[in-house]
């Protein structure tokens, strides 16, 4: 799952896959703004067939937090 999420993030943020590392966040990824964040959520929801709550969407603002919340949802 981690690799798929990395790939998705690199496509959505139009950035090199190597940029999507453990510390990736809006601070390290230039394109990660609130609009692209909405795109990321849309892709994740479609790819993994899940729905995030509005609070989760606000919380998922780093690679680590995305993985954490995704893991909770996928159980």
């Amino acid at each position: 799952m981690e690799n798929r999420i990395k790939e998705i993030m690199s496509v959505v943020f139009e950035t090199d896959l190597s940029m999507i590392n453990e510390s990736a966040s809006p601070e390290t990824i230039e394109n990660w703004d609130s609009l692209k964040h909405m795109n990321l959520i849309a892709v994740l929801e479609e790819e993994f067939n899940i729905t995030f709550s509005d609070d989760e969407i606000l919380e998922m603002l780093s690679y680590k937090l995305i993985i954490k919340i995704m893991k909770e949802k996928m159980i």
Partner: peptide
């Protein structure tokens, strides 16, 4: 098409 495929193909 899935959204992720649209994004990816659009970049290509």
């Amino acid at each position: 098409l899935r959204y992720s495929d649209i994004l990816k193909k659009n970049l290509e």
